[in-house]
Simulated assay, not measured.
Amino acid sequence: MQLLRTGEVSDAALVLFSGGQDSTTCLAWALDRYRRVETLGFDYGQRHRVELDRRAALREGLAALKPEWRERLGDDHTIALPALGELSDTALTRDVEIALGDSGLPNTFVPGRNIVFLTFAAALAYRRGLKRIVGGMCETDFSGYPDCRDDTIKALQVALNLGMESRFALETPLMWLDKAETWALAERLGGDRLVDLIVEDSHTCYRGERGARHAWGYGCGVCPACELRANGFVRYRARTA
């Protein structure tokens, strides 16, 4: 058995928390399981930076859902990574039309983003004594991003543990869920109140638009992120009708 270093907590987690639907669901999932849960957001000059502005309201909303969630919710952290945005010539970091690139990947793909995010998250978790790192990566409903694949996450877990002489567990509770199932998971975790909180306060739209209010939340309604979220919500409602 490997002993924990001084200050490490085996039942504590760090959640990659962007302010979107998936990361909010992951935060609820972690709060339902672990004694202490901290959150981490990244500012890399993303076009939809408004998502970061939603995080405080979502954290407070989650804390209000259950007394034990309020007790478990710990510190929030934000790391600025402007270099990632400067290196990335993508539709998430530039005001350009969203489209498929020559490689077959959508131009919303930011090369290395999840690898960078999880590496910085592990460095923070190491300092904070947290053993579990939770992310909303998903291989079922995704845009073909290679850094969302289960194989990528497993390989990165091995590399981080070797490089930091640690035993981090990278947890991806949404990996094999489609968007309808992600909505259903939120309902199981926090009932209609959590679904309503995600609809009202989370942000997913790649264009960063908060003007139009749809049944599934705010967004332009036509970008890939909005379409995925909207279609999942329709299927979720059909299953629960």
Rank of each mutant, 00 (worst) to 15 (best):
M1T: 12
L3N: 10
E8W: 15
S10Q: 12
S10T: 08
D11A: 13
L14D: 05
V15Q: 03
F17R: 08
F17A: 07
S18T: 15
G20D: 08
T24K: 08
T24I: 08
C26K: 11
L27I: 06
A30F: 05
A30D: 07
L31V: 11
D32Y: 00
R35K: 13
R36E: 14
V37T: 04
E38Q: 15
E38D: 14
T39Q: 10
L40N: 12
F42R: 08
R47P: 04
R47S: 04
H48I: 04
R49M: 00
L52P: 00
R55S: 04
A56G: 01
A57I: 03
L58F: 06
G61H: 09
G61I: 07
L62G: 11
A64R: 13
P67C: 08
E68W: 02
D75E: 14
T78V: 15
A80D: 15
L84Q: 07
E86Q: 14
E86R: 14
L87C: 11
T93F: 10
R94G: 11
R94M: 11
D102L: 10
D102C: 00
S103Q: 11
L105C: 08
L105V: 03
P106L: 14
T108D: 10
T108H: 09
V110S: 04
G112S: 09
G112T: 06
F117Y: 13
L118V: 05
T119V: 04
T119E: 01
A121E: 02
R128Y: 00
G129M: 02
G129C: 03
L130Q: 07
L130C: 10
L130K: 03
K131Y: 00
K131N: 03
G136S: 12
C138H: 04
C138P: 01
T140L: 07
D141E: 14
S143W: 05
C148G: 01
C148Y: 01
I153N: 01
Q157G: 15
Q157S: 09
L162M: 10
G163C: 09
M164R: 02
E165M: 03
S166M: 00
A169Y: 04
L170E: 06
E171R: 05
P173C: 09
M175C: 05
A180W: 08
T182G: 01
W183L: 07
A184Q: 13
L185W: 06
G191L: 09
D192T: 14
L197Y: 06
I198H: 08
H203A: 15
T204H: 02
R207V: 10
G208L: 08
G208S: 05
R210S: 12
A212W: 02
R213Q: 13
H214V: 01
H214T: 01
A215T: 06
G221S: 06
P224L: 10
P224I: 07
A225R: 02
A225K: 03
A225G: 04
E227H: 08
R229H: 12
G232K: 09
R237I: 04
